[in-house]
Write a protein that binds this DNA or RNA. Structure first.
Length: 840
RNA sequence: GCCGGGAUGGCGGAAUGGUAGACGCCGCAGACUUAAAAUCUGCCGAUCGCAAGGUCAUGCGGGUUCGAGUCCCGCUCCCGGCACCA
């Protein structure tokens, strides 16, 4: 490794490119001159809100932060040079578990001086310093820090208004309990049965918790029209919401209880040969007969202790118990047995199903396991003869014609969903006509559980009063301050539970004694609206400035990691709609365009982590190569949305490239190989680069943009060697190269811009435009194919006719050889591309 | 199982249906140097050939086309998301 990056030229005065000499200097001058401060009220240019996901203050800026922020910065700079008033803010998502866990860990070790607040603010200060090194154009004057009372106060106001509107509610339900982090988690935070932060196996607990009614917005959240988002994110959210069309059908137990089921295949109702309830279903205790009570209770007991992961592991083998009761199928009055089984989930649909073993693989396996009847109800397309259930090897869920199904016989199920299938449509009509059910849509999405049994978050602003029940805090008392004088007990419990001064309060309604809620809000609440706050971060009279929000939102471009495809991005969309319905904003969607970068992995192709020892420290890289080289290298690795394993091979190439650009401006030219290149060719190279770099940056193709810049640098270096360094074309070319390079390597571009003798900052220049006429050359090189194989190349005048081109092509010696003695069947001339001869 | 994305030299990758491998890394050779580093120049998919040139080649098998990495049909493998969701 080299300490300084050497350069050389064909002679003359030499000053090496040393990033350390220039980067700090320019960062400081840009700050002093405020060239990145945005006037939100400036109407002279179109506004462009370029947002990148704000980081959690973990303590150290990671190469992953660079990979996320640097290309976003380049795109924002490019957008700005193209004439937009670009807002590119930054802040910190500063509530959350890591800081609190650090305090608990320290307390366990006997050190009670570590506090999440001090730790967080120290880390923020350090990371801001690291951010400076990046040379990004963040407008820090709009900074938002979510653990500031001036921010979370508004979380509390929104919560109270949502409570009043019924969007926030408290209910006892089976929740995901993380035994390591000692808190509940939202469904979105449980990955493969484990907590997304702790990795601990999630337990199921019945607890009263605060929820947001995101399910009320399910259909609206499925509508992505007008949004320019990556299809994979749209697919993931659509999947997560999981809309199913079908019908709710009411069965009756022999005792007269109504048992509601949801099914996507009401057309197969005549094939329902048994029912299955979830073990937790409220009717289980009532319906179970005395003979079956012991077995049923044992099964319920057993499943209640199983974790999600145990249940999943159990999925291969169907288990269940007959509870002794029977229900009546409303369409044919068949008497069918009622079972309980853990493959039916209380949390989805109604927690009960009609089982059609002929048409559903799970029901089929269950029926085979326990010897239950299977009645064929669909004749598969193309099936011959009688359909016999004994011969089935698996359920038939595909298209076919209804049989054994009363009024549906002969109708077709075409495999489509809902009413798009004639058989399903007829089944729904029939159910509605006999008053036994109706069309219904069910979602996989559950309400957002936002209570957390932890300290370092926004206090939920409600009180519990013996006389008045649940009472929201008065608006004028907000914020409900998170007390700092708490003890981090080695139990790992939230300190709020033991803070007498916090818990004991007066009821805002009756003035009597009341207890404060000690749960705090999920930190995804903070990130569900933070971009509105960047517009008026210090306004303590209201959360959102309606005028500025109307002007600046929706966000024009949002960039961030694909790992937030569901969590943050779904909550942000939901919360924007809530804010709209509360009257705070007029937009329905937060982010017009979304681009996701991939993940930067360790060189071992694993996720970077301290425990794996594969973490790359950007500070070290900057010290060695300079920020511009690190920036260029991260953008050159490959397509941004693809991510890449980290590798040191290749970074030298970027260092060399920037040194050569340096040399173009700094070294005195001495080349004199006259005739190596013409001024027209220089001009063509420059305008070609403008065209390509513009298109690439607009499409976030940073890697190919840099490749084009390298090609332009090569052409200018060659032109200099050809003695053109004194020409206006060459000089304009260097100036253009610096402008095109400015978004990618802002420091060196600025330094060289000044050394070239140009005025002002390169970052305040307009983006160059290209002249199509300059791209045209006098002659073009065409490939010549014979029977699809390239047999030669010819150079022809750019304005040659097709006939003339064909004649030149035929004359090419190797082409002529392949044509000789053959009959010419076709000739295709594609001007500017190739000539293709077909011979027999 | 369902949904999304992918597979191109030794490596990262590039290619509106039109000369596959741009740009870079690694490697090899040369120039400069007492020497080395740095820098600069050239070469760099496989294979046959002295050369001219030929053959093969973008995961596999077909197809459309004058022409396919690109379009169509059928597979294999890899990555990501969801998953006993009725």
């Amino acid at each position: 490794m080299t300490e300084t990056i050497n350069k050389s030229a064909a002679g003359g005065h030499q000053e090496r490119y040393n990033p350390a000499d220039i980067e700090r200097k320019w960062q400081q001058r840009w700050r002093e001159q405020g060239i990145y401060d945005v006037d939100l009220h400036d109407d002279s240019k179109p506004k462009y809100y370029f947002l990148t996901m704000y980081p959690y203050p973990s303590g150290d800026l990671h190469i992953g932060h660079w990979y996320a922020e640097v290309p976003a910065d380049a795109a924002a700079r490019f957008t700005r040079m193209r004439g937009n008033n670009v807002l590119f803010p930054m802040g910190f998502d500063s509530f959350g578990l890591p800081a609190e866990n650090a305090a608990v860990k320290a307390a366990r070790a006997g050190d009670t001086n570590v506090h999440p607040a001090t730790l967080t603010y120290e880390r923020i200060a350090h990371m801001k310093q690291q951010f400076q090194q990046m040379g990004a154009m963040f407008d820090w004057s709009k900074e938002v820090v979510t653990c500031d009372p001036g921010y979370y106060k508004w979380n509390q106001l929104f919560f109270i208004e949502m409570l009043e509107k019924g969007v926030a509610y408290r209910k006892e339900s089976m929740v995901n309990w993380d035994p390591v982090d000692q808190t509940v988690l939202a469904n979105e935070q449980v990955i493969d049965g484990r907590g997304d932060r702790s990795g601990a196996l999630i337990e199921r607990r019945l607890m009263p918790q605060w929820h947001f009614k995101i399910t009320d917005y399910a259909d609206e959240l499925l509508d992505f029209s007008g949004l320019d988002w990556p299809s994979r994110v749209v697919a993931m959210q659509t999947n997560w919401i999981g809309r199913s069309e079908g019908a709710e059908v009411v069965f009756e137990s022999e005792q007269g209880d109504q048992i509601r089921v949801f099914t996507t295949r009401p057309d197969t109702l005549w094939g329902a040969t048994f029912m299955v309830l979830a073990p937790e279903h409220p009717l289980v205790a009532k319906l179970t007969t005395d003979e079956q009570r012991a077995a049923t209770e044992a099964y319920v007991e057993r499943t209640s202790h199983m974790s999600e992961v145990d249940r999943m592991a159990d999925a291969k083998q169907k288990s269940g118990v007959f509870i002794g009761a029977y229900a009546v199928n409303p369409v044919n009055q068949a008497r069918i047995p009622i079972w309980i089984a853990d493959y039916v989930l209380m949390g989805y649909g109604t927690g009960a199903i009609m089982a059609v073993p002929y048409g559903d693989q799970r029901d089929f396996e269950f029926a085979r396991e326990f010897g239950l009847d299977i009645v064929p109800v669909v004749r598969p397309d193309g099936a011959e003869g009688e359909v016999l259930s004994e011969e089935l090897e698996e359920a038939w869920a595909g298209p076919g014609t209804m049989i054994n199904s009363g009024p549906l016989n002969g109708l077709r199920h075409n495999g489509e969903k809902g009413r798009a299938s004639p058989a399903i449509a007829a089944a729904i009509e029939h159910l509605e006509s006999i008053n036994a059910g109706e069309e219904q849509v069910t979602y996989r999405l559950r309400d957002w559980l936002i209570s957390r049994q932890r300290y370092w978050g926004t206090p939920i602003p409600v009180l519990y009063c013996d006389a008045c029940g649940i009472v929201p805090e008065k608006r004028e008392n907000l914020p409900v301050i998170l007390p700092e004088d708490v003890a981090f007990l080695p139990t790992g419990e939230s300190p709020l539970k033991t803070h007498e001064g916090f818990i004991n309060a007066t009821c805002p309604s009756c003035g009597g004694a009341a207890k404060r809620e000690t749960d705090t809000m999920d930190t995804f609440m903070d990130s569900a609206w933070y971009w509105f706050r960047y517009l008026s971060p210090n306004d303590d009279s209201r959360p959102i400035d309606p005028e500025l929000a109307a002007k600046w939102t929706p966000v024009d471009m949002y960039t961030g990691g694909i790992e937030h495809a569901i969590l943050h991005l779904l909550y942000a969309r939901f919360f924007t709609k809530v804010l709209r319905d509360l009257g705070y904003v007029s937009v329905s969607e937060p982010f017009q365009r979304l681009r996701n970068q991939g993940m930067i992995l360790g060189s071992d192709n694993e996720k970077m982590s301290k425990s794996r020892g594969n973490v790359v420290n950007p500070d070290d890289l900057v010290a060695q190569y300079g920020a511009d080289t690190v920036r260029a290298y991260l953008m050159f690795l490959g397509p941004w949305d693809q991510g890449a394993p980290w590798s040191y091979t290749g970074i030298d190439g970027q260092a060399r490239f920037l040194s050569r650009v340096w040399s173009l401006v700094v070294d005195s030219p001495s080349g004199s190989q006259a005739g190596g290149m013409t001024e027209a060719e220089v001009r063509r190279a420059v305008h070609h680069a403008i065209k390509e770099v513009t298109e690439d940056l607009a499409a976030f193709r940073f890697n190919t943009a840099i490749a084009e810049l390298m090609t332009l640098q090569g052409a200018l270096t060659k032109a200099r060697a050809a003695g053109l360094a004194g020409s206006p074309e060459w000089r304009a070319g260097v100036s253009t190269l610096l402008k095109l390079l400015a978004p990618i390597a802002p420091h060196i571009a600025e330094e060289l811009w000044h050394r070239l003798g140009e005025d002002g900052s390169v970052h305040l220049q307009s983006w160059p435009s290209f002249d199509p006429a300059a791209l045209v050359s006098d002659t073009v090189t065409l490939a010549v194919q014979v029977n699809g194989k390239v047999r030669g190349q010819v150079e022809v005048p750019a304005d040659a006719t097709k006939d003339a081109i064909a004649a030149i092509a035929k004359a090419e010696p190797n082409v002529a050889r392949h044509l000789e003695g053959k009959e010419l069947a076709r000739e295709i001339v594609v001007p500017g591309r190739l000539v293709s001869f077909v011979v027999k």
